[in-house]
């Protein structure tokens, strides 16, 4: 086991506790939290703890999913700048959400969740299709992803500007938040995360070989194309679920894998575990920061993931080469 894991787990537990203690309502103490876990929820203080617990869990699931998806993308595409939303998942999901808000009045949040997932996955397959047509190499896939994302973003901008009355979601959903997480969407996201993670661990060895270069992996007996596409699909399932859960949250999918590789080297399974742990920690810290910075008016999560992630990435890029 990697030597960093115990430290990170300790930090995680601390962050978890802090997250349960942070919020505009000041009178929650540690004993209240312990009582909650033993006596269950009723109205009043336990209600607030329950809300914070759901929010904290959502942040942790988000961090885990983004990190896993990002790391997988970086290995499958052999590109250090790959991140969960590179292949159009988040812009596709955003387009779906915007369309729902324009066409349906008072859409049920569960409908929004499903549409986000479906549009995210469909866009991913469109990108993969275009990428495969133009060569099937990592580069062509990435180019397809970037161009499709930009095109969709253009459509989204037009829709939002024209229908701003209906889509007063403005910046909250578009930059990610866990503040309005429903139990149902959290549950679905956890299930999808597990569905995506298990195969990733099973295929770990094969995914690891992908970074050695296509010809090297071929010579090791790995079917490069299948492994690449399979891992990308798994990554897309996870990232679609994350986008549907909390909207597009940036930087975690980039910074957590980098930190993990710094700590664990390049072996996929170990790095995946570490990336997930680091992702959870970073997202938790960002959500805590959101609540401290703006107790009564909610801020989008990307505000702080970018604030923390940007300089972190810069620092990391100096410390490690790819």
């Amino acid at each position: 086991m990697n030597k960093y894991i115990p430290i990170i787990i300790v930090l995680l537990l601390a962050a978890f506790m802090v997250s349960l203690l942070t919020g505009p309502y000041k009178n929650i103490s540690i004993s209240d939290i312990i009582n909650y876990f033993f006596k269950g929820s009723q109205a009043g203080k336990p209600g607030i703890i329950q809300y914070r617990l759901i929010r904290t869990t959502a942040a942790m699931v988000l961090g885990a999913g983004l990190a896993a998806s990002g790391l997988t993308m970086q290995y499958a595409l052999r590109n250090p700048l790959a991140e969960p939303f590179l292949l159009g998942v988040s812009s596709g999901a955003a387009l779906g959400v915007v369309l729902v808000l324009v066409l349906i009045n008072n859409a049920n949040p569960l409908v929004i969740y499903s549409v986000a997932m479906i549009f995210g996955i469909i866009t991913f397959f469109v990108v993969i299709g275009i990428g495969a047509r133009s060569g099937g190499t990592p580069t062509s896939i990435i180019v397809a992803g970037v161009s499709v994302s930009y095109a969709i973003t253009g459509i989204i901008i037009i829709l939002i500007t024209k229908y701003i009355n209906k889509i007063n979601v403005t910046f909250m959903w578009l930059f990610g938040t866990v503040a309005y997480t429903l139990r149902e969407t959290l549950l679905y996201s956890i299930i999808l995360l597990i569905i995506g993670l298990i195969p990733l661990f099973v295929m770990a060895k094969r995914i690891y070989t992908l970074i050695l270069g296509d010809d090297v992996s071929e010579s090791m007996g790995v079917d490069v194309n299948t492994t690449r596409y399979a891992s990308l699909i798994l990554s897309a399932i996870i990232s679609s679920a994350m986008v549907a859960l909390a909207g597009p949250v940036g930087f975690i999918g980039l910074a957590a894998p980098w930190l993990a590789r710094l700590m664990a080297g390049n072996e996929f399974k170990q790095t995946l575990v570490l990336a997930i742990l680091v992702g959870i920690l970073l997202t938790l810290l960002s959500d805590i920061a959101v609540r401290i910075a703006s107790p009564s008016q909610e801020l989008p999560l990307t505000a702080f993931t970018a604030l923390f992630g940007g300089p972190l990435l810069f620092y990391l890029s100096k410390k490690t080469g790819w």
Partner: peptide
């Protein structure tokens, strides 16, 4: 309890 577009559920 927060803004028009971004109220705080906890508040």
């Amino acid at each position: 309890v927060g803004g028009f577009f971004n109220p705080s559920v906890e508040a």
